[in-house]
Simulated assay, not measured.
Amino acid sequence: MDPNKAAELFILNHFPNCYGSVLAGSVVRGEATETSDLDIVIFEKNLKTAYRESVIEYGWNIEVFVHNLTSYKEFFKSDCERARPSLPKMVSEGIVLKDSGILDLIKHEANELLDKGPEEWSVDTIKVKRYFITDTLDDFIGSTLRAEEIFIANTLAELVSEFVLRTNRQWIGASKWIVRSLKNYDEKFAGHFVEAFDTFYKTGDKNMIIVMVDEILQPFGGRLFQGFSLGK
């Protein structure tokens, strides 16, 4: 079934009295795959506690995010504090399925948060991140066991992508959203980032990753080990 029609029927059958609902996710962005689901955000007036539920209906996996008219604000806040604005993004990009006049304001709140970007990292936070990237990079360079190298590389990719994005006041992501977040920031850099790790995974050559990480750290003082301390 067409995703919009499936979402409309789902709302009609399960949340007929809701104050508002939006369809979000990959089907809205035109990025749907064979395993994509429908992300639906629903606003109920008298709901006591926000919740999330997964169901299968109309031939679709459906992820439902149900909020009352205040609970979404706390989720907006916590999502932005961790720099992964999942709910604001869903609300912002979502196609309206039903609206009793509340969604313009909620979408405006989401857009303001997204446009503002995450909080700037402090000098101390950058130092801590530099140290852990350095520590992981050293492990990566020194490792001679292929099984260990693979997973060290995974950790390094997460740390480095987070560092690049947060030091440039950009939202971060996990899993597939690492690459998507990097592309949103700088498509050329994202391509270089993917190429460096892809080369390592295919050939075992670490050089592109090492050079890239050093170039990223250089404006902030380079690798950090000597003199670093926590909790002293």
Results as ranks from 00 to 15, higher is better:
residue 36 S to L: 06
residue 37 D to A: 00
residue 37 D to R: 02
residue 39 D to C: 10
residue 40 I to N: 08
residue 41 V to T: 15
residue 42 I to V: 14
residue 42 I to Q: 06
residue 42 I to L: 05
residue 44 E to I: 04
residue 45 K to T: 01
residue 46 N to L: 13
residue 47 L to I: 03
residue 47 L to G: 08
residue 47 L to S: 08
residue 48 K to G: 06
residue 50 A to E: 12
residue 51 Y to W: 11
residue 52 R to P: 01
residue 53 E to N: 05
residue 54 S to G: 04
residue 55 V to T: 15
residue 56 I to A: 13
residue 58 Y to A: 11
residue 58 Y to Q: 09
residue 60 W to V: 01
residue 62 I to Q: 06
residue 64 V to S: 06
residue 64 V to G: 05
residue 66 V to T: 09
residue 67 H to G: 12
residue 69 L to A: 12
residue 70 T to M: 09
residue 72 Y to C: 01
residue 75 F to W: 09
residue 75 F to C: 00
residue 75 F to M: 11
residue 75 F to I: 13
residue 78 S to E: 07
residue 80 C to Y: 05
residue 83 A to I: 02
residue 83 A to T: 10
residue 83 A to Y: 10
residue 84 R to Y: 11
residue 84 R to T: 11
residue 86 S to L: 11
residue 88 P to A: 05
residue 88 P to T: 01
residue 89 K to I: 06
residue 89 K to F: 13
residue 89 K to M: 14
residue 93 E to F: 00
residue 93 E to R: 08
residue 93 E to P: 01
residue 94 G to M: 05
residue 94 G to A: 14
residue 94 G to V: 07
residue 95 I to G: 09
residue 96 V to T: 14
residue 98 K to T: 13
residue 98 K to R: 15
residue 99 D to T: 04
residue 99 D to C: 08
residue 101 G to N: 03
residue 101 G to Q: 10
residue 102 I to E: 00
residue 104 D to F: 15
residue 104 D to A: 10
residue 105 L to P: 10
residue 105 L to W: 09
residue 107 K to F: 07
residue 112 E to F: 07
residue 112 E to T: 05
residue 112 E to N: 13
residue 113 L to D: 03
residue 113 L to H: 10
residue 113 L to P: 02
residue 113 L to F: 04
residue 115 D to Y: 08
residue 116 K to F: 10
residue 117 G to W: 03
residue 117 G to C: 00
residue 118 P to V: 06
residue 121 W to E: 03
residue 122 S to F: 01
residue 122 S to M: 05
residue 123 V to N: 14
residue 123 V to D: 07
residue 124 D to G: 12
residue 126 I to N: 07
residue 127 K to V: 02
residue 128 V to P: 04
residue 130 R to V: 05
residue 131 Y to N: 09
residue 131 Y to L: 05
residue 132 F to G: 12
residue 132 F to T: 12
residue 133 I to R: 11
residue 133 I to Y: 02
residue 134 T to F: 01
residue 134 T to K: 01
residue 135 D to L: 14
residue 136 T to I: 08
residue 138 D to F: 13
residue 138 D to H: 12
residue 141 I to Y: 10
residue 142 G to L: 15
residue 145 L to K: 08
residue 146 R to P: 04
residue 146 R to I: 07
residue 146 R to D: 02
residue 147 A to Y: 09
residue 147 A to E: 15
residue 148 E to T: 05
residue 149 E to M: 14
residue 149 E to G: 05
residue 151 F to C: 09
residue 151 F to M: 07
residue 152 I to G: 04
residue 154 N to M: 09
residue 155 T to I: 02
residue 156 L to W: 10
residue 156 L to Q: 12
residue 157 A to M: 10
residue 160 V to M: 02
residue 161 S to H: 03
residue 161 S to K: 00
residue 163 F to Y: 04
residue 163 F to R: 11
residue 163 F to A: 02
residue 163 F to P: 05
residue 164 V to H: 03
residue 164 V to T: 08
residue 165 L to I: 06
residue 165 L to P: 03
residue 166 R to N: 03
residue 166 R to G: 04
residue 168 N to T: 01
residue 170 Q to P: 09
residue 171 W to Y: 07
residue 172 I to T: 12
residue 174 A to D: 12
residue 175 S to V: 01
residue 176 K to N: 15
residue 177 W to C: 04
residue 178 I to Q: 14
